[in-house]
């Protein structure tokens, strides 16, 4: 560990040091005046900051409640707003009739959405995907069945603990309702009840699902050839 008292103390107090590094630093600060001062000052500052926490006034709670109740709920967006206005208009015209009747997702897609939401467990298998995709870390690979299709669910987490699951199958995935073809190498993109889906046909048919657009794009675009 490089001797940079400020940086080391920040990492230590921020919980970034784990195991041996943490113990090593704790032994080090006993003898190092500079590092001890940094940690001590950081701790005192944290304690000061925490003592400044305030409660929202009750009147504000009531004001917020009243304001929200005057907002009309929006209808769910039927299309994933990916392209520009022209693309949106063309897609709207082509699929206009689809809005008249609610359309069901293909059963494989529906099963993938349910599996993601419920964090359905499967039989663990050895992963064929990388242990890391950029900042995403692989935590589990399990065999699952989605609407009659065999797939491997690879679960990745980002540094804040949000999950993205990549469902890999030998068969092509059907196209989700309201999906749009992307322009960055993906087969299609869709949004369904707050979840984002990106489908890739190469290197193997993969369906990337998550509720954070950034994470889903990161996984998909790091994975594709």
């Amino acid at each position: 560990m490089k001797h940079d008292p400020e940086r080391n103390a920040a990492a230590y107090l921020g919980g970034l040091l784990s195991g041996a590094r943490r113990r090593m630093f704790e032994r080090h600060i006993v003898d190092c005046e500079d590092c001890w001062r940094e940690v001590d000052l950081g701790r005192r500052g944290r304690s000061v900051a925490e003592s400044g926490r305030e409660m929202a006034p009750q009147a504000l709670r009531e004001r917020v409640r009243a304001a929200v109740e005057t907002v009309r709920p929006r209808r769910r967006r039927p299309l994933w707003a990916l392209g520009g206005a022209a693309v949106g208009l063309v897609a709207l015209a082509v699929t206009g009739m689809m809005f008249l009747l609610p359309e069901r997702e293909p059963r494989e897609i529906e099963a993938a959405l349910v599996a993601f939401r419920n964090r359905s467990a499967g039989v663990s298998v050895e992963s064929r995907l990388p242990a890391r995709l950029a900042e995403l870390r692989l935590t589990d690979s399990a065999r699952v069945q989605l609407g009659g299709v065999d797939a491997i669910a690879h679960t990745y987490v980002d540094p804040s603990g949000d999950e993205v699951v990549i469902y890999v199958s030998d068969e092509q995935w059907p196209v989700a309702v309201g999906a749009e073809h992307g322009n960055a190498g993906e087969t299609w993109l869709a949004e369904e009840d707050g979840l984002v889906l990106i489908c890739l046909d190469e290197p193997t048919p993969s369906l990337v699902v998550g509720d954070d657009l950034h994470d889903v794009e990161l996984a998909a675009y790091t994975l594709r050839p």
Binding site: R7, A9, G14, E38, G42, A49, D158
Partner: peptide
């Protein structure tokens, strides 16, 4: 990590800002 995501800054930058701010506050 959550602050990094909320503010769109790298985690190391967040920790440095927090640590320097805490020192000044103290």
């Amino acid at each position: 990590s959550q602050v990094a995501k909320i503010t769109g800054s790298p985690r190391g930058t967040v920790l440095a800002r927090v640590h320097r701010g805490r020192k000044k506050l103290a």
